[in-house]
Nucleic acid binder design. Sequence first.
RNA 1: GCGCCCGUAGCUCAGUGGACCAGAGCAUCGGUCUUCGGAACCGAGUGUCGGGGGUUCGAAUCCCUCCGGGCGCGCCA
Length: 480
Amino acid sequence: ALREGPDTALFVSAEVAKPGFVNLRVADGVYEATVADINAAPAEWGRLAPVARRRVNVEFVSANPTGPLTIGNARGAFVGDLLSRVLEAGGQEVTREYYFNDAGTQISVLGASVVALRRHEPLPEDAYRGAYVQDLADDLPDDVWAAAQAPGADAAAVVGRWAATRVRVNIEASLAHLGVRFDVWKSEGSLHEEGWVARAVERLRDGGHVFEQDGALWFRSTDFGDDKDRVIYRSDGRPTYFAADIGYVTEKLGRGFDHLIYIWGADHHGTVARLRNAAQAMGYDRDAVEVLLYSWVRFVRDGVEISMSKRAGEFITLDELLGEVGVDAARWFFGSRAATTGIDFDIELAKKQSAENPVYYVQYAHARIASILRKGAEAGLTPAPDVAGLLAGEPEGLLVRAVSGFPEVVEDAVAAQETHGITAYATELATQFHAFYRDARVVDVDQPERSAKRLALALAAKSTLANALGLLGISAPEAM
RNA sequence: GCGCCCGUAGCUCAGUGGACCAGAGCAUCGGUCUUCGGAACCGAGUGUCGGGGGUUCGAAUCCCUCCGGGCGCGCCA
């Protein structure tokens, strides 16, 4: 079989092992060439050439602007951003998108809450509470307040619209702090105003996929395997959330995306089928519409679960969480766990362990290499462009093999759409570097040639660590 | 009641029917005494893989069943 392979030069030997496996021994020159390649173009290392470059839309967070993002929104934010980074490493063109509704009943309730505070009246029964509502009341501009009080004006709606905008800007700032920047902010209202919803419904009607019953308009989702048909327009004529979803699919695909990914909490799993069914019914490839569900996070403090209610004003904001545990540590925490499994996040534990957190272990290895490279430069030693003969020793061999494994790790992450393989790999690579550091003197003025080659290997390891951390959105410090 | 997900070391989690599959990190205990960064290194280990049954040469992994937990089953979002 080896004789027939196209890459026989890669291998120096092949042998059959016990239960039917074939061991191929890779030629040293292959690894040495890899080191040289990494150092020649470090930014490219680990980026995959796409089989087919696709335009992918990743929509996530999408919390309505009724209050600050909380730790309940945290996982979606990290999972969506991590997935986007992985897809980009896999050669896809990614658009990060945030979908929100700034005109619904929730927004009216928020407006009514602000109005009541402004008028020093008791809060309505279903009001939003919490310090941020008072902040909104305090910051309400005079012209908005005047417009709200004009004769015939719907004060709650007017104030709500202003409040939603203000809240949304703050949400954007929180996400930026976390390292997530959205390319598109899409309002639900625009889908109706621009006719996307109406056209999508017509499309379904033309295909015979809708019917009227009890005064409402329904989508025959059961024709595509759903267990129930779904309402598009209520009997009073108002559209459901699902109606907007249908319009949104056509709007997104109309922008030329090849693939749509929705990042939803697992509690939405009941709505996945109707969305994909509708896409199929409208003539799209249902596989172009993908929903990734992330599982719930139980936030815990010293072993006690934290219960939250946004309306009651009892919640911990995303900003507070990041203030306590740090962005890099939080990114590592979420990145090192599969999105599909439920997890516990003990805030106190995360803080206590922060000094021993693997993320700092990996960053330390990176900083340590940076220091060694500086030390070498002071002694007049720089990484060699050609590292032929590098693998004379065992310490080099183990490290270079660890470094060489990076693209495969990225490949796996892209295929699985998960990042925990990357965190595990980064930890292992850091360990391999520390072992190399222990066993092999890098900077040695008496051995300039060997030093130059070892510096080249150290540099390659540094770039690999930096790129792995970069995939996770985590900084790679030159010094700590 | 029906549907989906989960149960792996003291804790938090990996483990996609095939060598390394019984693992990693943390926590715990012991050691290294360091001319390149000790935020490091070396060593020590505990598991009825929730229980039981089945398929297979071989099961944490696939099938059935039971127990325990989460979520969903709106003309809510």
